[in-house]
Nucleic acid binder design. Structure first.
Lengths: 355, 355
DNA sequence: CCCAACAGGTAACGCGCGTTACCAACATCG
DNA sequence: CGATGTTGGTAACGCGCGTTACCTGTTGGG
């Protein structure tokens, strides 16, 4: 009764073709097949038997068994990544970057979900389980990816294998990490506004304590200083990191000043807040970028590319961070030294139409 | 020179603890350990040695080797999913649904990227490679996920193992598939508008040929028919599936009629077009939903939840489809019969504030 | 008192493959 | 002509584990 495929019209399915079968079919030993397939340099197999073996492989449709190979060679060619894929509009980009890079290196990326509700509290049950599962698969390296830049604690068992943090950093500062250059991003954003002639720049801030806010604000300050200006604390308004929060903060900042003294540009520390800012600005009959220029941060495609006018913003280099994470891991597993404990990745400015 | 960890302060890292070590430490045979760890029912191991073994496992920090287990037991506990993660704002949700379900079943989901540019053209090089790689890992089942509902061609080798299609269907109609109930979604959207008292409903259509457009439109027609109304073809405008496309189509439809005859509601066949519709409506000094109600489709969180007012829309059940895909696969690999070749998944209405 | 029926455990084989040690045939050299 | 490579291969071991066949007491029944 347990037939998987009731209607089996005898396709060319050769399941379970093993190396031995290939060897028999080619009239050689299994060792010879192994040598040819792993085509080493110092081999000593005649060209003739070599092609004979390759033909046998083709004819039988032989497919190597990765598991067995891993067992025998004691290398799995797998990396593992632990990430909160749940609430993550971003995480996917990190995964994609890592995935593609791993694929280039002919490695597999095992993805394990981590629903850590709180980074601090020891709600690490699931996360530990994820790590454990990955180690059971004998991954050669581990990646931990966060959805927003912050400090994290990593399960103990991660010590057993090279580990790299992406978009987050180890609170104990032992593990190598890849994070966005928030400060550089803030600088480039404000420089762009300065270059467009704006000198009174309002800043719609995030929660001031998180690394993103600290870095971006610092960058803004730096850019202003380079232009001989100072950051007016009055012009910095914090709000919830949502469209509503951005809307309210923008209302606040726009209504506080007479038109003559009003900021002519807004630097929103994320795109969702920029979305709210758009509404507040339009509501007041002002135009973008004519009356007020807006620049965002994060480059959430769905927002930035579809707002009207399209939003000029600073991109978070998720894909690049993912790729760099895998590269760093590759270096570590190969025993090579890595460049630095913390690698900063550029946040490039994406010009659209709101400045 | 190739030291992975130069500063090795002797942590409790016990790498390579094997079953034999556990056996020795507990003073039993390796077989006994194997039996206890795979805790079978018909075992005959005394409670005492059983706990002794468990203690040894704890003390040595033994971690089973999943690869070796797979090799010996001839079952890998792995599924593979091939998906175009690249341009995909959605795919991630399918993956998440599948991932979570697989995790519940204590299985791993191997994700392989497929950058098939064209579903029809034989640009299947990469996709074939992905499938091949997955089969080398001896996955027990395969999932193919598309980012938008459409027909696809699947590599030959997929026949070797149970296969399920998600958000797409086999052009040859052989493989089981999981797709959204587009028609039901269209129906529920229009029903909601009817219920709010709207009878003149404009429809911002997608490319009329794709399954999504066909189904949703059919559903709309059905809902109207149930209310004794007919679909006015004049009120259906197709455009590019973007915010700009939605903007233009909406302008077209709004400017064509005198105010008295203007539609009082718009059914946008996706959220990006709804985004453009918002702009067109607001530009004309009209309010949402006061003057014109808007309903979308897809539930792209970043758009729907952050538009002002928040967009009422019909959700595409990606996560559920992913989960159902894995469940179907589980049934197939267990040799159980499946319910139907094509399973439809409900598209639920999400009430927000635009109706 | 002998035999069957357990409970409690072990030896040994094989999964598919990488790898090392070894072997035969031939060419080269002093 | 024997010693010494070199070329082209093979036998055999082990990776870590599941599984089956078997073995050794101890009981209970006739």
């Amino acid at each position: 009764m347990a037939k998987t495929n009731p209607d089996e019209s005898a396709p060319v399915r050769q399941r379970g073709v093993t190396m031995k079968d290939v060897a028999n079919h080619a009239g050689v030993s299994r060792t010879a097949v192994s040598i040819v397939l792993s085509n080493r340099e110092n081999a000593s197999i005649s060209e003739e038997t070599r092609t004979r073996i390759n033909h046998a492989v083709q004819e039988l449709g032989y497919r190597p068994n990765a598991g067995a190979r891993a067992l025998a060679s004691r290398r799995s060619d797998w990396y593992g990544i632990v990430t909160e894929i749940v609430t993550a509009p971003f995480a996917v980009d990190i995964i994609k970057g890592a995935q593609d890079q791993a694929w280039l290196d002919r490695r597999f990326l095992l993805i394990a979900p981590s629903d850590q509700a709180d980074a601090v509290g020891p709600n690490q049950g699931l996360e530990d389980a994820a790590t454990e599962k990955l180690l059971e698969q004998r991954v050669e390296g581990l990646l931990y990816a966060a959805t927003f830049h912050r400090g994290v604690h990593v399960p103990q068992s991660a010590n057993e294998v090279p580990t790299v943090l992406i978009n987050c950093f180890d609170a104990d500062g032992k593990l190598p990490s890849i994070v966005p250059d928030e400060r550089g991003g803030g600088r480039v954003a404000v420089e762009r506004l300065l270059q467009a002639g704006h000198t009174r720049i309002g800043i719609i801030n995030l929660d001031p304590d998180i690394p993103a806010a600290v870095g971006r604000l610092e960058g803004a300050r730096e850019a202003l200083a380079n232009a001989g200006l100072e950051l007016d604390p009055e012009l910095v308004v914090s709000g919830y990191a949502t469209a509503d929060g951005g809307y309210e903060a923008t209302c606040h900042i726009l209504d506080r000043y007479p038109e003559s003294d009003r900021p002519t540009a807004l630097f929103c520390l994320n795109d969702r807040m920029a979305m709210g800012a758009y509404d507040a600005i339009k509501e007041r009959g002002l135009t973008i970028p004519g009356d007020i220029a807006v620049i965002g941060f994060d480059n959430q495609e769905l927002i930035a590319a579809y707002l009207r006018p399209k939003l000029t913003t600073v991109a978070l280099p998720f894909e690049k961070m993912g790729a760099l994470g895998v590269q760093t891991l590759a270096a570590l597993t190969a025993g090579q030294p890595i460049l630095a404990d913390q690698q900063l990745v550029d946040c490039p400015l994406l010009e659209r139409s709101s400045v």
